[in-house]
């Protein structure tokens, strides 16, 4: 039944039986290999594939190559990943999410982890992050540090983002409050 419904639907199969009286004009095997037995259908397939790839990689999943040490050991330089641009359509970014923060555009972005949500106070004491005065459990931080920073309050539209590699000097590590509109999406993998 299932096969029948498929056959009667949009799928078409080449079921023509060659007539013995008619000369067969078989395409060259190389042509068949390159563009198939039905070039028009192949062209439609290629166009569909191009459109799907363009839409997917332009508006849904943004391919990125990671560069830098601020997210070690979670991510390393040279890793390829995808940014899910639709991750925050139904809900706002959550604590612990690894997000990409755009600069002037999306050619180069910061990749950071959200530790502070809007309205929260973030501070660093003896290398540990505190949210509203409570110690934040961060199992992903593997390198010890001695970061010290006075409390910073996130506005209603701001998220506090920081990398996992806290062994870097505080001033050399790019971190801070990111506006919600700058968060492009969530890391896919």
């Amino acid at each position: 039944m299932f096969v029948y419904s498929q056959l009667s639907g949009n799928l078409r199969f080449n079921t023509l039986v060659p007539n013995a009286n008619e000369p067969t004009t078989q395409p060259h095997w190389f042509q068949t290999m390159l563009i198939g037995r039905r070039p028009r259908a192949t062209l439609v397939r290629i166009l569909a594939l191009v459109v799907v790839c363009f839409v997917t990689f332009e508006f849904v999943l943004l391919p990125i190559r990671i560069d830098g040490i601020s997210m070690q050991p979670t991510y390393h330089t040279g890793q390829i990943d995808l940014i899910n641009r639709l991750a925050y359509i139904r809900h706002e970014p959550q604590r612990g999410d690894i997000v990409s923060v755009r600069l002037a555009g999306t050619s180069v972005m910061f990749m950071k982890r959200i530790i502070g949500l809007p309205g929260e106070t973030v501070e660093f004491h003896h290398g540990h992050a505190y949210i509203n005065g409570q110690l934040l459990n961060e199992p992903y931080v593997k390198f010890a540090c001695q970061w010290e920073h006075a409390p910073i309050v996130c506005d209603a539209t701001q998220f506090y983002v920081v990398g996992d590699n806290r062994s870097m000097a505080f001033d050399l590590h790019t971190h801070g409050r990111a506006e919600r509109e700058r968060i492009v999406g969530k890391l896919f993998l």
């Binding site: 600069l103 002037a104 555009g105 999306t106 050619s107 180069v108």
Partner: peptide, 22 residues
């Protein structure tokens, strides 16, 4: 300079550009 965006002022005599310097 990547992702350059240019906005021309209303007087057409000034402009502002934002970009990412690499």
């Amino acid at each position: 300079f990547l992702d350059v965006t240019v906005r021309i002022g209303a007087d057409r005599q000034t402009a502002e550009a934002t970009c990412t310097a690499k």
